[in-house]
Design a protein around this nucleic acid. Structure first.
Length: 790
RNA sequence: UGGGGCGUCGUCAAGUGGUAAGACACGGGAUUUUGGUUCCCGCAUUCGCAGGUUCGAAUCCUGCCGCCCCAACCA
C-alpha cells in the first residue's frame, strides 16, 4: 500500500514472494467461485441509520468494498432502516459522506430496506398461507415467559394454532393500523424447543406507529431484523453476506427465512468475522452516544472519538485508515488491536505528505546577544527532509529574539542530553549554532529567558571547523512568530479496556485527553488552509481544525506525536512498557443461575449408552472381548451405526489397529456424515486395514486407498492392484527416489547438515510423494538419514 | 442442565499432515542539522494443556482448560 515515490524496488529477500492478502472469507469466496455457485461476487455494507460510523465500521466497509473490488464484483450501500423509532435522515447523510470520504463508491447501488417493505409483506402473507407464520397476541412479558431459558425449552403460544384465515385477517388489520403497538406480532412457526433461542418462533413483524424517515406513515407494521435482512440480501442478489460474530446464532434463522420464503440457490449466505476492538477506546454506539450526550467530548466529531467524523477532524487520512484495515486482517478470533497500529498507519502516511514546519508549543525566550540588533535574515527552509522526494521551501525569518521549546533546555542535563544546557551548544534548525551562557529566572526561580551567543560561521547547517553538535532544535523568531491555538490530543481512556473493567467505563476517562496550548508558529503558517496537514518538526503531525480554524485565528489539532525514542529511554519502564492488563470482565451473573457447562462429546456418548442398552453392551464387550482401551471403546460406542461398522471391520482381524484407524482416520474423514452414507461397509474397511497391517501396503498407501473408497467405494485389494499401491520396500528403488529427492534440493541438504534437522520430514515427504504413497515410510526415513549423514 | 463460536510471539495474523510467513511493538547497529524517516540485524525448537495416531502433528483423534455470543416487539 504505502508508496514511496521514486524509490527503487527493495532487493528480493529470502522467501519474499509478496504474499497475497488472504483471509477465511476470501477462501470461502474462492471455493464458491471455483464451484460456480455464484456468477460473481456481490457484497453489501448495511448500516442502520441510527448513529455515526466508527473505525469498526471502517473495517467492515474496507472488507466488503475491498472484496467487490478485488473480485470484480459489486458492493451495495444499503440502509437497514426497519426501525423508524431510532433512525434519522441525518444519519443517512453522515453515513454516505463517511463512506465516500473513506474512498469507496457504491455507484448506482444505493438501497434502502424500506424500499422492499411491500415485497417483504407479500412474502409474509405467503408464509402465513403456507402455515409457517402466525399472529400472536401475547403481551411482551408473556412472550418472554413463553420463550423459556437457555437451558429450558419454551412453550407454545395458545395463539399458535390460529387458522390461516384468521392469521391473514389479523395480519392485514395490523397492516391497516387497526391495532396499537404491542397488541399483536407476526411470528414464524418453527420450534419452541430449539436449543437456538432465535429459532423459538421468532418475531417477524411488530406494530410500530411511528413516522418513518422515508415511508412516513405508510406502514404501521415493520419487519424485524432477522426477517428483513436476509430478504434484502436476496432481493439484491448478494452472494456473500458478511456480518460480525455476534450474528452467528442468527445464521440458522437467516437460512430458514430464505428457504421458507422461497429463495433458492444461488441465494446469499451469511459469513461472520470478528468486529474490531481497539485499545484505550470504546466502540459501542451506546457508549459513544453517552460520551456525546453527557458532554465528555464535544460531539460525534470530537477529534478524540473513534468515529470516522472524529478521526477525520483529528487529521487521520482515509489512506491511513484503509492501510490500518489491511494491517489488522480479518479473522474469527475476538481480539483487541493495539491502538499503536492505527498511530503507525497515520505516521506512515503523513510522513510523505505533510510538509515540515516549525512551531513552538511551549515557548521559552532566547536572546542571541551577539546578533545585530536590527538585523533580520530570511533563511531558506525546505518543506521536506532529504528522504522525502518532494520539492519546495519557504523563507523563515531569523532575528535576535527567538522562542525555543521549553523542554529543549535543561539546567541539569541528564546523561545523553542532546539539547541546550547552560554552557552547552545546540543547532537551530536551518539557522546557527548557539551557546547558552546565562539563565534568567524570575522571583519564583522559574527560567524565563536564555541569553545565548551565536556562531555566524555555522549558518544553515555549515560546520566549518568540524565541531560535533549533537542536537538540532526547532525555533521561531519572536518578532515574526504567529500565535496559534494548538489542541494536543491523547488517548480518551487511561486503561486499555475501559469497557471491560468493573464499574463505569467513564471512570477511566483520561483527564488529559485534550490539552489546549497557545503556541508560537512560524509566519508561513498564517496562510494555512483548511484541512492542511503539517509536521511540526520534532513534535508530531498536525492539521488545521475543520471547524474553528480561520485566517488570523489559527487552530491546529495534533493528529499524532512523532515517535520519540528519547522520551522512551528517559521515561523508564512504568510509562512505556505499561503492561496491557486487561482486567477480565466480571461475570454478569444473570438471574443467579450458574453458567451451564457444555455437554462434551464423551458425555454425549455416555448419555447415548444410558439410553441404548445395545450401546452399553458394546462398550463393555469392546473392552472385554476385543481388548480395546476404555477410550477407544467410548469413542466407538456413541452411536450404533459406528459400533456396528467397527465390529464388522474388526471381525477376523486384529481389533486394535482397526479401532485406531476408525477413530483416528475414518472419523476425521467422516466429519459429521453418518457412517451409513459411506460407499463401503465395515468388512471392506477391515480388509483395508488388514492389508496395511500385513504391510502389503504402507500407511500412506492405505490412506490413498481410503481416499478412493471414500469417493467411489470398491474393494481395497482391487484398488491396490489397479493403482500399483503395493508397498515399495526394496532398497534399490527406494534409494533411487531418495537420491533424487536430495539432488532436487541441494540447498536444504546443506542446511540440514548445518543442523536444521527439521528438514528431514520434507525429504521423507518428497520421497513418499514421488512413490505415489507406496514407499515404506520407516525405511525411507532410514535411507534419507543415512544419505544425509554421508 | 442448552446451543453457537474462538484459543499460533507483548499485539494483530498466515498456516488446511512435510523448513512456524508477515506486520506492529521491542532490542541492537548504520545513515541523518527532526532523539523523525530510511536501511540492516535480532526477536515462537514451538502453536491453551495433556494423552493418542503417524516415518513425520500447529494441522488428524480423544480428554481437559480458558474466553466470547444467544432468553429486545434493537440491529
Amino acid at each position: 500500500m504505502s508508496t514511496t515515490p521514486e524509490s527503487t524496488p527493495p532487493p528480493a529477500r529470502k522467501g519474499d514472494e509478496s504474499r497475497q492478502a488472504t483471509n477465511f472469507i476470501r477462501q470461502i469466496i474462492d471455493r464458491d467461485l471455483a464451484e460456480r455457485r455464484y456468477p460473481g461476487v456481490a457484497t453489501r455494507f448495511p448500516p442502520e441509520p441510527n448513529g455515526y460510523l466508527h473505525i469498526g465500521h471502517a473495517k467492515s466497509i474496507c472488507l466488503n468494498f475491498g472484496l467487490a473490488r478485488d473480485y470484480g464484483g459489486r458492493c451495495h450501500l444499503r440502509f437497514d432502516d426497519t426501525n423508524p423509532t431510532k433512525e434519522e435522515q441525518e444519519y443517512v447523510d453522515s453515513i454516505q459522506a463517511d463512506v465516500r470520504w473513506l474512498g469507496f463508491d457504491w455507484g448506482e447501488h444505493l438501497y434502502f430496506a424500506s424500499d422492499y417493505f411491500q415485497k417483504m409483506y407479500d412474502l409474509a402473507e405467503k408464509l402465513i398461507t403456507d402455515g409457517k407464520a402466525y399472529v400472536d397476541s401475547l403481551s411482551k412479558d408473556e412472550l418472554r415467559e413463553h420463550r423459556g431459558s437457555l437451558t429450558e425449552p419454551g412453550r407454545e403460544s395458545p395463539y399458535r394454532s390460529r387458522s390461516v384465515e384468521e392469521n391473514l385477517d389479523l395480519f392485514r388489520r395490523m397492516k391497516a393500523g387497526e391495532f396499537d403497538n404491542g397488541e399483536h406480532v407476526l411470528r414464524a412457526k418453527i420450534d419452541m424447543a430449539s436449543a437456538n433461542m432465535l429459532m423459538r418462533d421468532p418475531l417477524l413483524y411488530r406494530i410500530v406507529k411511528a413516522e418513518h424517515h422515508r415511508t412516513g406513515d405508510a406502514w404501521s407494521i415493520y419487519p424485524m431484523y432477522d426477517y428483513a435482512h436476509c430478504i434484502e440480501d436476496a432481493i439484491e442478489g448478494i452472494s456473500h453476506s458478511i456480518c460480525t460474530l455476534e450474528f452467528e446464532n442468527n445464521r440458522e434463522l437467516y437460512d430458514w427465512v430464505l428457504d421458507n420464503v422461497g429463495f433458492t440457490e444461488p441465494r446469499p449466505h451469511q459469513h461472520e468475522f470478528a468486529r474490531l476492538s481497539l485499545d484505550y477506546t470504546v466502540m459501542s454506539k451506546r457508549k459513544l452516544l453517552t460520551l456525546v450526550k453527557e458532554g465528555h467530548v464535544g460531539g460525534w466529531d470530537d477529534p478524540r472519538m473513534p468515529t470516522l467524523a472524529g478521526l477525520r477532524r483529528r487529521g487521520y487520512t482515509p489512506e491511513a485508515i484503509r492501510a490500518f484495515a489491511d494491517l489488522i486482517g480479518v479473522a474469527k478470533t475476538n481480539s483487541t488491536v493495539d491502538i499503536g497500529k492505527l498511530e503507525y498507519c497515520v505516521r506512515d502516511d503523513l510522513n510523505h505528505r505533510a510538509p515540515r514546519v516549525m512551531a513552538v508549543l511551549d515557548p521559552l525566550k532566547v536572546v542571541v546577544t551577539n546578533y545585530p540588533l536590527d538585523l533580520e535574515e530570511r533563511l531558506e527552509a525546505s518543506y521536506w527532509p532529504h528522504d522525502v522526494p518532494k520539492e519546495g521551501s519557504r523563507p523563515v525569518p531569523f532575528a535576535r529574539e527567538l522562542y525555543i521549546e521549553r523542554e529543549d533546555f535543561a539546567e541539569e542535563p541528564p546523561q545523553g542530553w542532546h539539547r541546550l544546557s547552560k554552557g552547552g551548544e545546540v543547532r537551530l534548525r536551518y539557522g546557527y549554532v548557539i551557546r547558552c551562557y546565562e539563565v534568567v529566572k524570575d522571583a519564583a526561580g522559574a527560567v524565563v529567558e536564555l541569553r545565548c551567543s551565536y556562531d555566524p560561521s555555522t549558518r544553515g547547517g555549515a560546520n566549518p571547523d568540524g565541531r560535533k553538535i549533537k542536537g538540532t532544535i526547532h525555533w521561531v523568531s519572536a518578532k515574526h512568530a504567529v500565535a496559534a491555538e494548538v489542541r494536543l490530543y491523547d488517548r480518551l481512556f487511561t486503561v486499555p479496556a475501559p469497557d471491560a473493567t468493573d464499574g463505569d467505563f467513564k471512570d477511566h476517562l483520561n483527564p488529559d485527553s485534550l490539552t489546549v496550548v497557545r503556541a508560537m508558529v512560524e509566519p508561513s503558517l498564517a496562510a494555512a488552509e483548511a484541512g492542511a496537514h503539517y509536521q511540526f518538526e520534532r513534535q508530531g503531525y498536525f492539521v488545521t481544525d475543520s471547524v474553528d480554524h480561520r485566517p488570523g485565528e489559527l487552530v491546529f489539532n495534533r493528529v499524532v506525536t512523532l515517535k520519540d525514542s528519547w522520551a522512551r529511554k528517559t521515561a523508564g519502564p512504568e510509562d512505556d512498557a505499561a503492561p496491557v492488563e486487561r482486567e477480565s470482565k466480571p461475570k454478569a451473573d444473570k438471574g443467579g443461575k450458574g453458567r451451564p457447562t457444555k455437554l462434551t462429546a464423551s458425555q454425549g456418548r455416555g448419555k447415548a449408552r444410558e439410553a441404548d442398552p445395545a450401546l452399553a453392551e458394546a462398550f463393555a464387550r469392546f473392552q472385554a472381548e476385543h481388548g480395546l482401551s476404555e477410550e477407544d471403546a467410548d469413542v466407538l460406542t456413541g452411536d450404533l451405526a459406528l459400533a456396528t461398522f467397527f465390529e464388522a471391520a474388526a471381525t477376523g482381524h486384529e481389533p486394535e489397529p482397526v479401532a485406531k484407524w476408525v477413530t483416528n482416520v475414518l472419523l476425521a474423514e467422516l466429519k459429521d456424515r453418518p457412517v451409513a452414507e459411506l460407499p463401503f461397509d465395515g468388512a471392506a474397511f477391515g480388509r483395508l486395514i488388514a492389508l496395511a497391517d500385513a504391510k502389503t501396503i504402507s500407511t500412506s498407501g492405505a490412506k490413498a486407498v481410503l481416499e478412493v473408497m471414500l469417493a467411489e467405494g470398491g474393494e481395497p485389494a482391487a484398488i491396490v492392484k489397479a493403482r500399483g499401491l503395493e508397498a515399495m520396500t526394496d532398497d534399490a528403488s527406494l534409494q533411487a527416489l531418495v537420491d533424487a529427492a536430495l539432488a532436487a534440493h541441494p540447498d536444504n541438504v546443506a542446511r540440514y547438515r548445518e543442523g536444521k534437522t527439521t528438514l528431514l520430514g520434507s525429504f521423507v515427504g518428497a520421497v513418499i510423494k514421488a512413490s505415489g504413497g507406496s514407499a515404506d515410510a520407516k525405511r525411507v526415513k532410514e535411507l534419507v538419514k543415512a544419505a544425509l549423514a554421508g
